[in-house]
Amino acid sequence: MKIVVLDGHTLNPGDNPWVPLEELGDVTVYPRTATEDIVPRAQDAEIVLVNKTPLTAETLSQLPNLRYIGVLATGFDVVDLEAAGRRGIPVCNVPGYATNAVAQYVFAMILELDHHIRDHDASVKAGLWAASEDWCFWNTPQIELTGQTMGIIGFGAIGSRVSELAHAFGMKVLACTRTPKPVPDYAPFSYASIEEVFEQADVISLHCPLTADNERFVNADLLSRMKPEALFINTARGRLVDEHALAAALAAGKLRGAALDVVSAEPISSDNPLLSAPGCILTPHIAWASLTARQNLMRQAGANVRAYLAGRPANVVNDTWLAR
């Protein structure tokens, strides 16, 4: 069984061996693959695994031996699901591997925006504390989360975990989800529309997948509904957000701050308007990247392939097209 990984560097930069896959077949791992190299590298493979390397309908048509696609992530927008399904190729993702890592990262972003810890560290090291007439000082307001409202868009595993952490901080939770779920056993919690979340929340965090229907749904209209003291957090997908609208809202003081771990084109382009937006923190898509999470991902990717080889594909995301 020939297995090809087209972009394996971020999952295993040297600390997370490919053993779960190597136990199942002849594995070739490429750190990165340019678009023009996808077909030559994957042409003979029965199993291909990708993270961000796109597998379009045109590309898939040139891979006659392909029988299985594994996405080394929870999001699967890099694969043409319909084209794969029409070929009878299951596309399987890895849900839940980074739930705790991403939820923790969300609050790292929120707490940095509320306390500006690194700025205060720099002030101390620049001598401002030593020169102070008082025993303490602060350069920015210190903001407490207790009593604030957390707004969560998307209430899958990560959104649910963020909600639990918000509750632990003493926050109220408003959640918007397309799929009805039981109300958690903590309060205050309620489901709400997207508009209600943007109007009422003090912090808004995105945890929904990117689909053809929701690209750039966070637009000028939704942003205009936010409280001017509110924060916006995105660790989901960059293309959920109209970045020009968000940069304009920050420049106009229509929200207090934003923190994004994802942007519309990655790596970020030099003309991305968020690079110069005031009150905006940008990090290089690392919320998922703890070693623990990457080890979880490696194990589950191997388990997915093992399930496919046993005739019982797991975590299939294009089952609708397969059924057709």
Rank of each mutant, 00 (worst) to 15 (best):
D121N: 08
I153D: 00
S269P: 00
L128Y: 13
F198I: 03
L206Q: 00
C280K: 10
T35A: 15
T320A: 14
N16L: 11
I233D: 06
G238Y: 04
W135V: 08
A303E: 15
F217P: 06
D134T: 12
P180N: 11
Q200F: 00
A301P: 01
K52P: 05
G302N: 00
P95Q: 11
A130C: 01
T235H: 09
I3W: 10
V203M: 12
E215G: 02
A301V: 05
I152L: 14
L174W: 02
R216H: 13
G257E: 06
L282R: 04
P273V: 02
A265N: 10
T179H: 14
T74N: 15
K172M: 01
I281D: 05
C280V: 07
R237A: 01
E82C: 09
L222Y: 10
P40T: 06
Y30Q: 06
K52D: 06
L322A: 09
T179E: 09
H9E: 14
G25M: 07
A98F: 04
A101S: 15
A323F: 10
V71A: 02
D44P: 05
G88V: 05
V94I: 14
E196P: 04
D221Y: 14
S290D: 07
L145I: 08
S205M: 12
A230C: 11
N234E: 07
A293M: 07
F155D: 06
A126W: 09
A251T: 15
T211W: 00
V102D: 08
L246R: 06
T99G: 03
R86L: 15
M150W: 02
K2M: 04
G156T: 11
V50W: 05
